[in-house]
């Protein structure tokens, strides 16, 4: 069975997120290991990553639209998205709790910010992976 436009869109979002934001975390991780502890120093890197991600998302969706006719979302697409979000949101919840704990323990704001951002990233990646599993295995 060929992939629907919605499934291709999930692949595009997953790939761009892993490539671009994954790259951000590699660079930011080395900066943090190097002792850069001011949050403002990460802003140019963050803005670059966001702009790059938007470009990759647009290019990916244009490619997906060229290889298959875009169709509106239907009830199965919505159910798959809801179920994937429901089964991946615990990662973000753990990240938020860990972030609050780090604030209470007096960690630098750069660590707290990246812990929160990292948990949002991992939660989103898990959500996209689950969506792809549900598209293939059924819901």
């Amino acid at each position: 069975m060929g992939s629907s436009f919605e499934e291709k869109s999930v692949w595009v979002q997953l790939s761009s997120m892993v490539l671009v934001l994954g790259g951000y975390f590699v660079v930011a991780g080395s900066m943090m290991a190097g002792g850069v502890n001011t949050l403002i120093a990460y802003v140019p890197l963050f803005v670059t990553a966001v702009v790059l991600m938007v470009i990759v998302l647009i290019a990916g969706h244009i490619l997906a639209a060229i290889t298959g006719r875009p169709e509106p979302r239907d009830e199965r697409d919505r159910l798959i998205e809801w179920r994937a979000e429901s089964n991946s949101s615990w990662v973000l919840a753990i990240g938020v709790l860990a972030g609050i704990s780090c604030m209470v323990l007096g960690y630098e704001s750069v660590w707290v910010a990246h812990l929160l951002f990292g948990s949002l990233f991992l939660s989103s990646v898990l959500g996209f992976v689950l969506q792809l599993v549900y598209y293939r295995r059924g819901v």
Partner: peptide, 22 residues
């Protein structure tokens, strides 16, 4: 019916139970 071909394929193959409306 107003669904994608892939969704109809999933219904036909027993991978997805449609809503009552569909």
């Amino acid at each position: 019916v107003g669904v994608s071909r892939q969704t109809l394929n999933a219904i036909e193959g027993g991978k997805y139970a449609p809503s009552l409306e569909v």
